[in-house]
Write a protein that binds this DNA or RNA. Structure first.
Lengths: 210, 210
DNA sequence: TGTACATCAGTGAACGCGCGTTCACTGATGTAC
DNA sequence: TGTACATCAGTGAACGCGCGTTCACTGATGTAC
């Protein structure tokens, strides 16, 4: 119930920052009813604007959703980079932070997460979106590179594969157990503990001790 | 474009098996436009029946979707059980089949998969649905139990945790790389190979050789 | 075997509603001179 | 500093459409006797 986020007083004919507010509206509405659970008109209403206004900024609902996903990937990449912290003070610790950041993102930014991974937006269809998504993955890839470099030279696994493994185990736990909506499965431990144990076993299997 | 699946000739006043046909309709429509991408009326139209007819079988669209998810979990549990094959001829081989069955299901039954994991149906809300979902997981749990029993008695990990690890890594790969729709991420190898490598590393980390 | 009746599973017409989208418009803002 | 004009970002009314849902109905099937 906000047609002026923050209540900056009655607005005039122009909204000022409708594009941003439509994104906020989408995030709020996704949180309430899932991606796909709101309409273009809903977003306009949420922003306190006529149903024709959003057309000045987005071609249609999908474009709005795509923008949300794009921003989500940007935010996500930043969070991962920050968590990785250049691999300091040691690789194991940095990996723990990286995993935690992934789970935190799924939990605390469910709307972005849904737009990014569960809204049906086609990453392949939008080059800009794809680039933002790749940037997130690049963060995992960098971490894997550092990890692999620490291993004895003989029998090093490809860093790309390791990155994909880390991604999929983290994504699996996030999607099943760290989501914020009704589809979350019950779990007899914290998602963080489950992930950390899995990561340790995996790293042990690789032959590195974290 | 089928109002009589299989073309069994013109039907009379009664449809015969509308409930089944509505499920078929839902599967078809989910495949085309995603869960959430079709309406109750669409399903009726697909089944060649008046828009009021579905109400004889389902309270609303959500109940139909829930039924699809329920059937999906039943089918899924069967596929996993079959793949596991009582752990024969050896645990490693059976695990490989189990993983492959999971990925195959995601790929070949995208509609069921979407209804089960990405439609927003609340498993907690429907006891029957929950029981079917639990049955699928039980299959993974049984497999983990066998695996753990093969390990030396000292320092055995909890079978439940191992089952959850297997589930999340498989689910992560399935959701990211083995899906059949536009949200699939590109992968420079087969999802099966990626999973098998990960499984081997994980098992090595546990201290069992498959 | 026939008949009466109950039940089931459909029909089709109707309704109110909200959505997506277009349109000519208009108020506010920026810019040239 | 003032004025004329172009551009931008909104309005609000309108439209056709399809959805969800209800309703009295009716054809088909099953069952009691």
């Amino acid at each position: 119930m906000s047609w002026k986020s923050g209540g900056r007083g009655p607005r005039g004919y122009h909204h000022g920052d409708l594009r941003e507010d439509l994104v906020r509206a989408a995030l709020e509405l996704i949180k309430e009813k899932g991606p796909g659970g709101f309409t273009f008109a809903d977003a306009a209403r949420w922003a306190g604007v006529s149903p024709a206004a959003p057309y000045r900024h987005y071609r249609d609902r999908d474009e709005l959703l795509g923008d949300v996903a794009k921003r989500g990937f940007g935010l996500f990449a930043g969070r991962l980079r920050e968590a990785w912290g250049d691999g300091k003070p040691n690789t194991g610790e940095a990996f723990r932070r990286l995993g935690k950041a992934y789970l935190d993102f799924a939990r605390n930014e469910p709307s972005y997460y849904a737009a990014m991974f569960e809204s049906g937006v086609s990453i392949a269809g939008d080059p800009e979106l794809r680039e933002m998504a790749d940037r997130s993955f690049q963060q995992l890839r960098d971490a894997a590179e550092v990890l692999v470099a620490k291993m004895p030279a003989q029998g090093r696994p490809p860093a790309l594969m390791v990155a994909l493994h880390i991604w999929s185990m983290t994504h699996g736990i996030a999607s099943l157990f760290a989501r914020a909506d009704a589809a979350r499965r019950p779990l007899p431990m914290s998602a963080e503990d489950l992930l950390e144990a899995q990561m340790l076993i995996y790293l042990k299997g690789l032959g590195v001790d974290a």
